[in-house]
Design a protein around this nucleic acid. Structure first.
Lengths: 226, 226
DNA sequence: TGATGTGAAGCGGTTCACAGCC
DNA sequence: GGCTGTGAACCGCTTCACATCA
């Protein structure tokens, strides 16, 4: 079908499809239909077909998709066939946890360096990963071939750190600071805002239908009225 | 305007509006118009008005919104006027980092307990927070008045942990395991899937327009035909 | 025949534009 | 006059339904 601009919703789903295919492959399956995928993993078959069709004709009519083949295609589309190298700014608990996060390795991301401004932290190691002085960010980044940055500093420092990162030529950034950041056009910034997610949970709990359900009162048995 | 079902997109924006109002209030401002808010924080004024109007008529025509008043309204709508108590399952690095996460406290969430199955971890303390045996989840949850659970365990354990949580009557859950989970109707589950976010960054870097910019290899094979 | 690829319809959310009110 | 609250237009994503092809 080929189209100019692919929605991020589509690429997010490609990640999911890839996971599903991995699971099927691990079970020894060789091919699968969009309906098969959809039923197994609670997805929508039309959407799967449409998402995939944006990138090419990967299926065979009347048959379905070859699993190994499709995995390879999606892996390439998502750029997961080459390793990405990650620099994490902020060597606090969150930064350290992320440095250790198995999910990074699992998808061909390798944490190459941590950065901090705190003299006490600089030079420390978390596992194999060294903490560098944030002042040396640009230099270390180049040496270590870092192409993805993670912002794990308090909100008030985030915008400054962001500029440091973009000045160093990094084009892909993940931000954990709960604050909206502004970037110029050709940089991709993903903000994971836990505060917003938490408050959305709080909203749900505060909903009239829930105030008598679970909650702060111990003498509740969690009754529910449909 | 009053409507039955409020979109999560709207409630997420309420969180953002609240932040903006806090900032304005800290600067001593007393009232603000939707246009004023929009320009200052790069939002859309019509959307602000519409979002707020779902919950009541908080503004004054020709004048704008009273900041203190609006803060109070949004705080109540989001249920942030009462404290939430959080239990984190998984006392690994991620769980420990979250237990320490300042963002929780900032919005009236208090981490009350950690849980793990690892005998070595049970009984440990992270700051003030004790690690309990996951077997005692239901009991501890009731004693500590926990109403929000956070899943910070490896993906393969997540579904089991989820069931434990819902069995204990918890209605609001945040999941960090990179796997889709199934819940019954009256439980609110928010999954923060870092893997998907990362792969979306990777997709961006792999885009034809970027392969010759930053990146590791100059020899691209994925050119695009329009 | 059976499953893909895709135009068309449907749906939800955003933006516009203005009537209504201070 | 100025800004809110809101119907209507708009837009993009999802779902449907079917022509197409192995």
């Amino acid at each position: 079908m080929k189209v100019d601009k692919i929605s991020e919703l589509t690429t997010n789903r490609l990640s999911i499809y890839l996971r599903c295919l991995n699971e099927l492959a691990a079970e020894g399956a060789k091919s699968v239909s969009s309906d098969g995928l959809a039923n197994r993993f609670h997805l929508n078959s039309a959407q799967i077909r449409k998402d995939l069709a944006y990138f090419g004709e990967f299926g065979v009519r009347g048959v379905g998709y070859d699993i190994a083949d499709l995995r390879e295609h999606i892996t390439k589309i998502l750029g997961l066939d080459k390793e990405h190298r990650v620099g994490i700014i902020g060597a606090g608990r969150l930064g350290a946890a992320l440095a250790d996060y198995y999910g990074f390795q699992r998808t061909n991301f390798k944490v190459a360096a941590l950065f901090d401004a705190d003299k006490d932290k600089i030079g420390q190691h978390f596992g194999e990963i060294e903490v560098f002085d944030i002042k040396d960010f640009s230099e270390v980044t180049k040496k270590a071939n870092i192409d993805v940055a993670v912002i794990a500093v308090p909100a008030e420092y985030a915008q400054g750190v962001l500029e440091l990162i973009t000045d160093a030529g990094i084009k892909a950034i993940m931000n954990f600071a709960p604050t909206p950041l502004r970037v110029s056009g050709d940089v991709k910034l993903k903000t994971v805002d836990l505060t917003i997610s938490l408050e959305s949970l709080s909203y749900y709990l505060a909903l009239p239908s829930n105030v008598n359900g679970a909650g702060l009162k111990p003498n509740s048995t969690n009754r529910r009225k449909k």
